[in-house]
Computed example of a mutant assay.
Amino acid sequence: MIRKILLQNRSFFLGSFYFPGQNEYTTVNQDGGTKLVRNSCSPAWPLSIHFFPTLIIICRFCASFPASKPMAIVILQQATLETRCKTYSTTLILLAMFLCLIGGISYINLSRLQEKNRAQRALIASLVELTDWRDQETGQHLMRTKHYSKALAKQLRKNPKYRKEITTKFIKDVFDTAPLHDIGKVGIKDPILLKPGKLTNEEFEEMKKHVLIGRQVIQDAIDKFDIQESFMMTARNIAAFHHERYDGSGYLEALKGPAIPLEARIFALADVYDALRSKRPYKNEMPHSQVVEMIQPESGKHFDPDVVEAFLKLGDKFIEISEVYRVRPS
């Protein structure tokens, strides 16, 4: 941090920034006498200071922020305006002031961003607990599908068509919020949700409502707290639209093609892939090759053709994710 600034008169001053590790300063008397107390240290940046009250304000501003390491020590020495103006440009001190100010603001913004990110992760983790507490397989399904979705998004970004839309932030939002896709299932009755066999038509209609419930839960949070963050919009879109189909035959809104949000089109394939690969009470696990044979013909029907194209390039990655997050017999 900036350790000491001692001013005892208001004439023109020449300052030097000294880097951390030493405790040193200069006092300046009215008659021009000085007293220097220091350990070994070399000046790093000479500069002119003729508007030192502003410098003091900025230094105090910077000094008010906690940091793990000191920033600099300012040592002030008396000089005359006529001599120093010939050598040092006032632009340097203005630049120094500006950099100090920007540094302080950046530190605040970074701290706030990190705190907000921690809060977001805590919120998502808490909501996910609502969907995966029933059984271990559900928890592993959430892990696998978010990794599948991340792999698909990264591969899809290589397509020039999506380079602007699929940013690093987009990929992170999809990865972080994919586990919320079935949050609406908390509103589905256990006899239907936990039924070991195939659902009847009536039961399936009831099960469809989980996307409506999920969208409403997340949208209520967005509206109540006036949330503008993209991760919440991504969570809502995945929860609401991951059962839509590219040809418009999905539910609940029968959206078609690009009308379906990209994050939902990506997750739709990840979700179906995992459902086919996983063992259920009413079906056996399928090998990757068989799942590929089922997904590929659905390009342009159930799935976005671009997403299917990306998927076909990720065979080894999908197999790896499936193995890493497989439920092991206890």
Rank of each mutant, 00 (worst) to 15 (best):
R157G: 12
R157P: 14
K158A: 03
Y162Q: 04
R163D: 04
K164L: 10
K164I: 09
E165N: 12
E165R: 14
E165H: 14
I166G: 13
T168G: 12
T168F: 02
F170E: 00
I171Y: 00
K172T: 00
K172N: 07
V174T: 03
T177L: 02
L180H: 09
L180W: 04
H181L: 04
H181M: 04
I183D: 03
K185E: 10
I188P: 08
P191A: 09
I192C: 09
L193T: 10
L193W: 05
L194I: 07
L194G: 12
L194R: 15
K195V: 02
P196V: 00
P196A: 05
P196N: 03
E202W: 11
F204C: 09
F204T: 10
M207E: 04
K208V: 00
K208L: 10
H210G: 13
H210R: 13
L212W: 04
I213K: 07
G214R: 10
R215Y: 08
R215M: 03
I218V: 08
D220A: 15
D220I: 06
D220K: 15
D223I: 07
K224I: 15
E229Y: 05
S230D: 02
F231M: 04
M233H: 10
R236F: 11
A240S: 04
H242R: 15
H243L: 12
Y246T: 08
D247C: 13
S249V: 00
G250T: 00
G250I: 00
Y251M: 01
Y251G: 00
Y251C: 02
L252V: 07
L252P: 15
L252C: 09
A254Q: 13
A254T: 06
A254W: 06
L255I: 01
K256P: 11
I260K: 09
I260A: 06
L262D: 09
L262S: 13
L262E: 03
E263G: 06
E263K: 14
E263L: 13
R265I: 01
I266M: 14
L269W: 15
D271Q: 02
V272P: 11
V272M: 04
D274E: 10
A275T: 09
K279N: 14
Y282V: 08
Y282K: 15
N284H: 09
E285A: 11
E285L: 11
P287G: 01
Q290M: 06
Q290L: 07
Q290V: 08
V291Q: 07
V291W: 01
V292C: 10
V292N: 06
